[in-house]
Design a protein around this nucleic acid. Structure first.
Lengths: 211, 211
DNA sequence: GTGGCTCGACTATCCGGTCAGTCAGATGGC
DNA sequence: GCCATCTGACTGACCGGATAGTCGAGCCAC
């Protein structure tokens, strides 16, 4: 795999054809894992020849990197959208948990990709920027929520950035322990509830039910 | 890669030669990642021929599985050993954190392998048992500690098994967010402190300093 | 007809696994 | 004590299959 020399391109600025390939690539990765991703598979999934994949994304690494970024930004946007309407600071945590834990299949797809990204980022320098992007998106969102919650009252937190980091660790860790389970489909609600309860503890939310 | 039909063998019951190969395998995996592990690399690392690796471990999958189990049990035993002497329930959490966060290099090696294991376990059924073994070892240890802490007072926890799961999520998640960082070497103490503080919150430990 | 787009054949490489065979040391018959 | 035989660890050449990337030629819309 050749080394990418330039920054990963913005997926939203790609031609429609390239974006379709990106979606095919994402589908193949969720099905097989990024390590078993082959250009031929992506081409087959998209119903085109392998040459075309390389025509739009010069190398496999570039395709992979761009797919990561695409999935990351799409997921981040979706979560933001989901919690945009919620104003009550007491409910915003619940809304976030609802937004993140949508359903077992999609959570599994995304977090398996995310785990792959971490593994790659730790070994291959060019993946570092995508991984940093992930941290920016995720921690930024969490920190924003926490600051808001503190300002409106209801959250007992000293350092929002630190709390956001802890929050991220808890949520990502919940998925990490959930992913390899054989009963991942059935246990999804249980892990969701556990994560919710732990998060409330972590953020010092008053746990007496609202009257 | 052929499918393993039988349970992964106990690494401690292997011949010295095979155990040496296991250590070589672990070294190669920590260096390159399990997906870039080749039999030739292991053979080179051990200074033998590739044929020998397959002589002792019939398939690559079996070698990999056994290496995982070896690393898992070795790490679990080391942590148990480290906290064995601590009696004071207020210090046992600190001791655990000290035992887990030994140093940046070893944490990185182990958790990169662990992340690989999760990815494999989620895709390849034969890795499920090793992953379950990991859960047993880790959650068992945590639950034991929590029960002990509750019995001696100092921990405000309702369901120890549930608290253990949350604890594991927090710790594993801390490493997951730490791993892909470029500054992983320098930021190790910071993540350790963050994890420690969050853990105290999560377990409802009285945070006023002892007089 | 020209240039972007698409194909598919081809190349080079890598890697898991097989296999025939080497060699050193143990065994045992005399 | 000595040689024939055997055994099991170990090697290295080899095979088959997969796969990233190249390239030249065809297609078609403008």
């Amino acid at each position: 795999m050749a080394r990418a020399q330039v920054a990963v391109e913005d997926p939203t600025e790609l031609s429609p054809r390239a974006q379709a390939l990106l979606r095919s690539s994402y589908r193949v990765i969720t099905r097989q894992g990024s390590h078993r991703l082959s250009l031929q598979d992506v081409a087959d999934e998209a119903g085109v020849s392998k040459g075309m994949v390389l025509y739009y994304f010069k190398t496999k690494e570039n395709l992979f990197l761009t797919t990561m970024r695409y999935a990351l930004e799409r997921t981040g946007a979706r979560i933001r959208e989901r919690i945009a309407g919620v104003d009550d600071p007491h409910r915003v945590i619940a809304a976030l948990i609802d937004a993140i834990f949508i359903d077992a299949e999609r959570n599994r797809d995304f977090y398996l990709l995310y785990v792959d990204l971490v593994e790659h980022a730790a070994r291959v320098p060019s993946f570092g920027q995508v991984s940093s992007l992930a941290t920016e998106i995720i921690n930024g969102l969490y920190e924003e929520l926490i600051r808001d919650g503190v300002a409106r009252g209801g959250l007992a937190v000293e350092d929002p950035a630190e709390a956001a980091a802890a929050m991220r660790a808890l949520i990502d860790g919940t998925f990490l322990t959930w992913l390899p389970r054989e009963d991942w489909r059935e246990s999804h609600p249980r892990f969701k509830a556990l994560c919710h309860a732990s998060l409330l503890r972590l953020l010092g939310v008053d746990r007496s039910p609202a009257p």
